[in-house]
């Protein structure tokens, strides 16, 4: 028995080691090959010469814009759904179970399917409808940032719903009871007691989605991301360049693979740092919230 114990401890430790080795290997290669590319110009210039030179500013800008619009779509719906499931839905009822199952299944749908759904639903159905009603030519019925953001939002809904629901449910019953006993209505109890305490949990969901949204390519492929744009998008109805897609383009569509490679690594490094910064920011906020609430 003792031998097996030792073996198991070693084996599980080894697995962790292997995973870490992979992670560091990836980061090391990217940092080594990409660090040389990073410069002021790389951040501020647009790609030139068939994307074999220049910078990635439009892609950074597009990514940030995309993720912001996505958050605007995502958070109200996701948090409201989380509130409903945690606070209002009759727990243990068949319908609620079915809704939870649907949310879980939504999380399992491959992202390319969301991309196609975005084309069908947002561009061809909602977009066309909007254009027709507003008497416009082709504004909404084409791939654009708005629909890409909406598609990404749907992709990320399950995460936000689930993290919100869990964060809300984690608020102790004693605090709810205390609020009710002081004459709070359910709405006031939720707004003043539950949401402030659930905030850091909800925020985690939001940031997880943002850092995931910044890297997902499949959902935006047909719904708004551009291969190359000579201008910076101004309106949500414009197309946009995006870091993840730009990486795909650089690595597969370049006319001169060798010349593009430093750019490619540089772009990957930027995307990596962006997500890392976002996650660090989220963790920092969470720690601050926790401290504020003394937990």
């Amino acid at each position: 028995m003792k031998g097996w114990d030792k073996f198991f401890a070693l084996a599980s430790g080894l697995c962790v080691l292997i995973i870490f080795a992979f992670l560091f290997w990836i980061i090391f290669i990217i940092a080594r090959n990409g660090a040389g590319t990073i410069s002021w110009e790389f951040f501020t210039a647009a790609p030139v010469e068939g994307m074999t030179e220049g910078g990635i500013f439009p892609a950074i800008y597009g990514t940030v814009f995309l993720v912001l619009v996505m958050t605007v779509f995502l958070m109200p719906f996701g948090v409201m759904a989380g509130i409903y499931l945690a606070e209002y839905a009759p727990q243990n009822s068949r319908l609620t179970q079915a809704i939870r199952l649907a949310v879980n299944n939504l999380a399992g749908v491959p992202s390319i399917v969301f991309g196609l759904f975005g084309v069908g639903f947002f561009i061809q159905y909602a977009g066309r409808g909007l254009d027709r009603t507003l008497g416009l030519e082709t504004v909404f019925s084409q791939p654009c940032l708005l629909w890409a953001a909406a598609t990404l939002a749907i992709l990320n809904l399950p995460v936000v719903i689930k993290t919100s629901e869990e964060a809300i449910k984690a608020v102790p019953l004693e605090h709810r009871e205390a609020a009710f006993a002081l004459g709070a209505t359910k709405l006031k109890m939720i707004v003043r007691v539950v949401l402030p305490q659930a905030f850091s949990g909800i925020l985690t969901g939001a940031i997880l989605s943002v850092s995931r949204g910044a890297g997902e390519v499949a959902p935006i492929l047909f719904t708004g991301a551009a291969y190359y744009l000579p201008y910076i998008p101004k309106l949500p109805t414009d197309q946009f360049m995006e870091l993840g897609y730009h990486i795909f383009v650089l690595s597969t569509q370049s006319p001169d693979v060798d010349k593009t490679q430093p750019l490619l690594y540089g772009t990957i490094l930027v995307l990596l740092l962006l997500t890392l910064a976002l996650n660090t920011f989220a963790i920092g906020l969470r720690v601050r919230m926790r401290r504020k609430y003394g937990r």
Binding site: A178, P196, Q197
Partner: peptide, 9 residues
């Protein structure tokens, strides 16, 4: 209540 339950505020 039985257990002190101040809000985390």
């Amino acid at each position: 209540f039985q257990k002190p339950n101040p809000f985390p505020m």
